[in-house]
Amino acid sequence: MTDPILEVSNLSVVVGRKKILNEVSLSIGAGEVHVLLGPNGSGKTTLLMAVMGMPGYRVTGGSIVLRGREITGMGTDERSRAGIALAFQKPPPVRGVTLKALAESLLEAKAGGNGTVRSLAEKVRLRSCLDRELNVGLSGGELKRSEMFQLLCLEPELSLFDEPESGVDLDNISVVGEAMRSILGMGKERSRKAGLIVTHTGHILRYVPADAGHVLMEGSIVCRGHPQILFEDIRKHGFEGCRSCRHCRSI
């Protein structure tokens, strides 16, 4: 593995009073994309939220390290400024704040980014939505494209994608996929940008090839391997089959 961008070690996370993650460890190298699989309720979103430092996701053990720097105690905004960004599965509506105003502020903070509000919005076919309030009244596809648009503005070093293809039709999946490739610097030589993708269907992997996969069940990583092989196994045997496979026994 190249120099790790993200190192999660023995991470335990509690939401409310319930322990959701139990000593989870994973490491993502520079330029790598990993995929996180698992049944509903296994803790996939919790892991992304915990890495992003979202309130309500309390780390009770372990550590999160970004580029060699411990960030476990950092606030959400500090982590964003440190280079992490999360594309939410269900972003909340923020009334009164337009997508354009937010994008302008993100680009302004970035100073010297890779595009203008209009050009980046064009990439995800969102120009007509720029004056809309953030996440208000958008379709499923528009919501996902809006998240991608924001990540394009942010240019994060580590991108976290929470089910980027859910609720998205085929046309939109290709736009989302292309945006993810751009966000992850795919096609550029020596890109150090890394990503962690939560996916149920694996459809997005047609557009964004992943280097490694992890299967999360009941808050613990139970299997690792090549994403396509993991998907094939899950398709054949379901997640329960994961528990008994030889890969899992080796973890």
């Binding site: 309130p55 960004a85 909340p92 009164g96």
Partner: peptide
Amino acid sequence: IAEEEVAYLMSRGMTREEALSAITRGFLN
């Protein structure tokens, strides 16, 4: 003020004060 909205804007790099300010200004649009 919806904490979920504040946290969302903070995940875009805004400080808590900036996020609160954006939300209140948006409310008073």
